[in-house]
């Protein structure tokens, strides 16, 4: 049986991890490769690297980092952040990334999704959607959630599926950083209306939240950052607990 996936997310700036991490075994806590290796050895199912640097050198630094990651880890990983062209995608996949995550650029120019899917296959296209509720309506937001749009989350999700997205990474801005659980109602609706996998993001605080997002939110995968980086939740413990609660999981 296919298992639910647990995905740690690492923020990267100029080739280094940004958010503080609490790993005593790391010689260099800012080294994304070292951190990634530890996660891979501790049963993370995939990894997501989100590049938030804004320098001119960004592309080159990122390509080098992606190659370094691909050399050292033996599980799939996705790279996102500022991807706006087929060339950006080609460079990342050529460096060894398995998938790319496209966000704002897809909203600005939806054809980018189909261009990437046609050239490299849907399996490598993750469309990231940041959304929050405005008067009870889920609206897509851009630029890391800062810029609201009038686009409805569910309509946009269906459109990206049609355009060839292989997966959707949905982050609820209302839940992100709260540690109060995932946006399970919206997640369940996405899962029911679409046939591609949905990755839940935003709100992980404890083990029960993961259980809920798989059971109530019908998510195919759950992504989190700080609860893993600060070891508030250890992935092997989380997975044992989920398995004990009847969730199909890889241990």
């Amino acid at each position: 049986m296919l298992t639910k996936r647990i995905i740690p997310c690492l923020d990267i700036k100029n080739g280094r991890t940004v958010k503080g991490v609490n790993f005593v075994e790391l010689r260099d806590a800012g080294d994304p490769v070292e951190l990634a290796k530890i996660y891979a050895e501790n049963y993370a199912d995939e990894l997501v690297f989100l590049d938030i640097s804004a320098t001119e050198e960004r592309r080159k630094t990122l390509a080098k980092l992606v190659e370094d990651i691909a050399k050292h880890i033996n599980i799939p990983f996705t790279v996102g952040g500022g991807i706006s062209s087929v060339d950006d995608v080609a460079m990342l996949l050529k460096s060894g990334a398995d998938k790319v995550s496209i966000n704002s650029a897809a909203v600005r120019r939806p054809e980018l999704i189909s261009e990437v899917a046609q050239r490299f296959g849907s399996q490598c296209v993750v469309v990231a959607i940041d959304a929050k509720q405005i008067v009870g309506q889920w609206k897509v937001h851009l630029v890391g959630g800062k810029q609201p749009t009038d686009i409805d989350l569910f309509e946009w999700a269906k459109k990206v599926q049609e355009l060839g997205a292989g997966e959707i990474l949905f982050t609820s801005m209302d839940h992100d950083g709260t540690k109060a659980g995932f946006a399970n109602e919206a997640l369940a609706k996405l899962s029911e209306e679409l046939h591609i996998p949905i990755i839940a993001s935003g709100g992980a605080g404890n083990v029960k939240h993961f259980e809920d997002t798989f059971k109530l939110g019908k998510a195919d995968a759950a992504l989190a950052a700080s609860v893993f980086h600060f070891k508030e939740i250890e992935i092997p413990d989380l997975k044992k607990e989920l398995k004990a609660n009847g969730i199909s999981i890889r241990i």
Binding site: L2, D45, G166, H195, I196, P197, D220, A221, R250
Partner: peptide, 8 residues
Amino acid sequence: KVPQVGWN
């Protein structure tokens, strides 16, 4: 869901 994505 199709595609199947993940560990089986």
